[in-house]
Amino acid sequence: MSVLKFTPKQFDDFVSAMLKTGRPVMAPQAKNGRFAFGPLASPADLRLDYDVTILPPKKYVLPQVETLLEFEVCGPCRSVQEGQPMILLGVHPYDLTAILQMDELFRQGQYDKHYMDRRCQITIIALDVVTPSANVFASSMGTATVRSGYDILLTVLKDGSILADVATAKGQELIRLAGSVVPASEADLKARKDVWEHNNAALNKHILLCKPSLLPKILEQNYNHPVWEEKARLCYSCGSCNQVCPTCYCFDVQDRVNWDLKTGHRFRCWDGCLLENFATVAGNHNFRKDRAARYRHRLYRKGKYVPEKIGGQIACVGCGRCISACTAKIANPVEVYNRLLQDTKLG
């Protein structure tokens, strides 16, 4: 549609105007020397220069705990839709890619209304990366920049001005709050292209030595590679890699009753395939009881299983969060994939 240009002051005013609508605005802010998405109270708290957040913004599309149903104990259930309008501001391209994948996973096959309804009510204002994080490898995964999937895309230029690419009707509606801003000039668009070109190469602290599209093939040949055992030996099965991953979406479902013991709710909450009892069934048989098998499963899901389910896009977006979050320092997908590549004969 259109690209507009904000001065920093105009952008602050735009953010203030969004806050005044009463719709919650979730945005990256400083937290203990790191960054986290949280409800924004003032434009001053917004950190467009953040490198990476501790948790990805998936927590707004798939909350850590989400009520699905309310019920009478041992009686009928009623559907609960918790979604409400929200503005998700400052989503990096790799995180946006992950959300778009999740959209497909919850949409395809059996339509997950709880996810989709929540998602439909979110307006996403994406943001090109300003500061690369210590472990980002989005350039390797082809997710350093995006061309679609957002409602508005922000790009901060060298001179501090901010371009806003308005891509959807939802974005259009929001940008009306901006007041009088000028359209971007040819020179601005050129500057934005430079940012993209830069990011497409520079968000690469770990370099994958092949095209990501080769990963399914590489994995296919390395199911019994020694790397699984070598890495998993140090795995705490703490699920930190799952928790911080923008593409992990496995969940558990539990019931909780109120003090009246007559009513309650059924909710889903994040789960992780690295956790010891992820595949344990009633009667205590654990179908994936080896650490190495759980460790392998995660990297197969990212590099093969999910891509095959959603049509090609690798389910690792190169945010690097798992690398930082893993206490044992064994989670780096690039390290594993490169190791496999090195031992693989590709025909």
Partner: peptide, 13 residues
């Protein structure tokens, strides 16, 4: 979940 979302019953792909 029974509907191919929650991931618990996955065996490989």
């Amino acid at each position: 979940c029974g509907v191919g979302k929650c991931g618990h019953c996955q065996i490989n792909d």
